[in-house]
Nucleic acid binder design. Sequence first.
DNA 1: TTGAAAGCGCTAACAG
DNA 2: CTGTTAGCGCTTTCAA
Lengths: 340, 340
Amino acid sequence: MPSKPNIQDVAKLANVSIATVSRVINNQGGVHRATEERIQKAIDELGYIRNAAARTIKRKETNTIGVIVPDIKNPFFPLVMAGIEQRAREKHYFTMLSSTNESPIIEEKIVKNFIERGVDGVIITTANENGDHLKLLHDQKIPIVAVDRNIKRFEVDTVLVDNVKGSYQAVQHLILQGHEKIAIICGPQNTTPGHERFLGYKKALENYNILFDERYVIQGDFGEQSGYQVTHELYSLEDKPTAIFSSNNLMSIGCMKALNDLNWELGTEVSFIGFDDIDIATFLKPKLSVVSRPMNAIGEVAFQLLYDRICFKESLQKREYLLSPELIIRGSCRLGKKTF
Amino acid sequence: MPSKPNIQDVAKLANVSIATVSRVINNQGGVHRATEERIQKAIDELGYIRNAAARTIKRKETNTIGVIVPDIKNPFFPLVMAGIEQRAREKHYFTMLSSTNESPIIEEKIVKNFIERGVDGVIITTANENGDHLKLLHDQKIPIVAVDRNIKRFEVDTVLVDNVKGSYQAVQHLILQGHEKIAIICGPQNTTPGHERFLGYKKALENYNILFDERYVIQGDFGEQSGYQVTHELYSLEDKPTAIFSSNNLMSIGCMKALNDLNWELGTEVSFIGFDDIDIATFLKPKLSVVSRPMNAIGEVAFQLLYDRICFKESLQKREYLLSPELIIRGSCRLGKKTF
DNA sequence: TTGAAAGCGCTAACAG
DNA sequence: CTGTTAGCGCTTTCAA
């Protein structure tokens, strides 16, 4: 038994031409019932599986999309991925996932690789929002959907979360509890999510006429360690904040570890609210209030946009989805000094 | 500008034959320096990227491996995946990841798809250990590495974790703290990890001459809810256990939630140790002691095995890696009644 | 050092 | 309903 039977082998065994076999494996119909059965039998007997490469070379489509994420270890992305995969499977699309470790250089390699493999489209959370390294994709007119982070250099469909609104609501909640000394652990300001979450923070302060105090604004890098570090810095201020807003999940975890090490008591001495829900949220006492993003929906929408774009190409306008995050109030935001 | 330049376009622009272009893009040497430069210039100018499908059809290899996991949302797998990807990238291999949602049916579809695409090998944590649905891979002599769960029907290389040893150590630790009424939240006994972790528990009891008590053995399904449920059952026993060993991460989480709801006090009233580390472990008071598996290493070893197998095929013996889990003692196992 | 040409396995147009 | 045939873009002899 030769290790890989091909369409020829099937044709020979079934005593037909390869064209007829091709019709059968592609369900094109117009084949005699008996012939079809004979062919099917031959296929089963040989364990024939069609060769995607050969087919691609003719068809110029692969039914495959590429997904690029910055960090597969961040639980946010597997959840988005699950949404993408689910929808993709329904449309008989296949998904290739690669992680860049936040490196634009690796990202460019992955992009090139995806193109070589002829992906029909790409869903990406880029490591570099200016998007220069995505030029290749753009030149080849391969549909792109940007998730969570925008791409500046080109017009692409986007699925973003309303970061400004989310952090506005979070900070507003703190304000309504009477807090005025509200600190923010920022994400990198050269990323859209990092910057927008800061903007929401600022906007909330402004709207409620609370003095913006630079000492309460410290930047992290979205990593756990930086959340830990920044919290220590906040604690060392002579005029400590009474509430902290953290810009993402990992920094929230770092912050909690710091609170613990510093014996800075959550809920009583310092209130807290974080962007993105985390596993530990409901195990802490008090439980953490958070702004939660609909990960699965993000993935589903992203695939849908990409799919439509693959089908209709340039005839579609640029589409921008802005999903709303949800404020989940648990117990980590207690009344501040001032009460309404 | 035509959207996808091919080797012909490059050849024409550089005024050479496609054969020479092929030599250059494959770094085969034996091309005049000047010619090569001319070709390279043409490639850059056109933004030419070679077509993997066409190449595959000739070469019969894709430099791609497939990875199949049962649940991408379980944090264990992205961590393993990160290890695989890292090593794969070093060897210029590309990784395709798909998740089966524990469905053997989906798994079979994925396998078929991987074969169509000509993957050079597959790393899999199967949803069905008997492995019938993997026959296709086996027939085509595509190298397989089984991770975390074995495959019974065929001889394949494996990267497993020493579950027996891990749970033995965990239970031993409880025993040495003076516990005798030790309960186990079992995983499904028809899975290797579930069964082996139970065996380790039994072995430890035997070795220390502690009576095996069936009331303390309750089975869950590796899901969070079942951990919650089982803990309630244990609590309702008239002779409650003084310590609990949970067989996996999600059931540990369920167990913690139950402890909380029942006001069954961790560390004092009941000790605890779990298989697999979890995020919340260090946030609880006392911190959770656990048996931890080396996820990244598992991924790295898995790729290495696969890579060697791709290179040397049948000339290699079956190889079985058994990685040791590590006992991480934090604080959730306090002294039991009896002291040594 | 370079080119011509024969396929790889498949699809699709055309002919019968 | 079925077969013949011309490629798809590339690699790889074999000759020049």
